[in-house]
């Protein structure tokens, strides 16, 4: 699989409240040391009053369009990945299109933490016949489904948005892998009738490591690229120990792996988009690079993509 994909611009939106581990230790039975050692998280962003899933997505998309040198009215289609929409109806993309002043086609995509990679693969397949650049966005306001009294989840999850503008170009989506094991839905869920995320952390950890490794290898194989030929690995930012365990099993060096969860926490569908935007801003992405993205989470659902950067 190949052909003519450029990530022409990336953008992110950082919500207004920076919440440190020390802040959480004041209200929960936890500590900076406990949170850091088990997750790698030092601080995270939580939405301020008035910040919504749609407003965060709009900000990230506007930033990505600016980076691509595009105006909103040029957008050919919007794929927005989230598991925390502001409303069940209509979809978040409608509010985002309205805020951007555009009328292109749009839909929301729910694949939990695999959302952004799923959106990217979907957007890449729409692109050849789209009437303009395809925007893919991962956005979450997970604080709306976080139990503030549950120290096992409240310290991990966070809010944010990231977006990418896809255009025809010299790069390519070389290969991808995606899958679902719905028998594992209870490991990470908002139970039926419940309001808050519930997670079996240990089992998710173990499953996640195996899933990332298998899925990343499958994407690499389909792309004809060996894992040691990956120049930049951007895994879902769930937990630094999952990232570390998966990275070492894949044989990808730490210096080629993008980790920003120390400042962001787990932003589900937004995490890979934010990490990719930060890696780009830091000058870590170069033309010809093999860039491996791998998302995994509730479902359990996973998606990996191997891009040749342009």
């Amino acid at each position: 699989m190949s052909g003519g994909l450029a990530v022409a611009g990336l953008g992110l939106a950082a919500p207004g409240r920076t919440v440190t581990n020390a802040d959480l230790a004041e209200v929960l039975d936890t500590s900076d040391e406990w949170i850091r050692s088990r997750s790698g998280i030092g601080e995270r962003r939580w939405a301020s009053e008035g910040e919504t899933t749609a407003s965060l997505a709009t900000e990230a998309i506007a930033s990505a369009l600016k980076a691509a040198g595009r105006t909103p009215d040029e957008v050919g289609f919007l794929v927005l990945a989230t598991c925390t929409p502001d409303q069940l109806l209509p979809h978040t993309g409608a509010a985002v299109c309205d805020a951007l002043g555009i009328r292109c086609g749009s839909f929301d995509l729910h694949a939990a933490c695999a959302g952004f990679v799923s959106a990217l693969v979907t957007g890449a397949s729409l692109l050849p016949t789209a009437p303009g650049p395809v925007v893919v966005c991962g956005v979450e306001r997970l604080t709306q489904i976080l139990d503030p009294d549950d120290r096992t989840t409240a310290v991990l999850f966070a809010d944010g948005a990231g977006a990418a503008v896809l255009e025809p170009g010299d790069g390519a989506l070389l290969g991808w892998d995606a899958g679902t094991d719905g028998s594992l839905r209870e490991l990470l869920e908002v139970p039926v009738g419940g309001r808050f995320i519930h997670m079996d952390g240990g089992e998710v950890f173990r499953r996640a490591v195996r899933i990332v490794v298998d899925s990343a290898i499958a994407a690499c194989e389909r792309a004809g690229v060996a894992p040691d030929e990956v120049d930049v690995f951007v895994p879902h930012q769930a937990n630094v120990r999952i990232v570390e365990a998966a990275r070492s099993r894949l044989g990808i060096p730490a210096e080629r792996t993008v980790v920003n969860l120390d400042r962001w926490g787990n932003t589900s569908a937004a995490s890979i988009a934010i990490a990719l935007a930060e890696a780009d801003a830091a000058g870590r992405l170069h033309p010809g690079n093999h860039v491996l993205l791998s998302g995994f989470g509730a479902g359990m659902t996973w998606a990996s993509a191997l891009l040749r950067w342009s």
Partner: peptide, 27 residues
């Protein structure tokens, strides 16, 4: 070793011996 380290240790053993140890049995 914290709980996640124990999971990682058992994962390594699972790989070596081709067995599965469910999380709830580790608790």
């Amino acid at each position: 070793a914290d709980s996640l380290a124990l999971v990682e240790i058992i994962m390594a053993v699972e790989d070596r011996l081709d067995i599965q140890v469910p999380e709830d049995e580790l608790k």
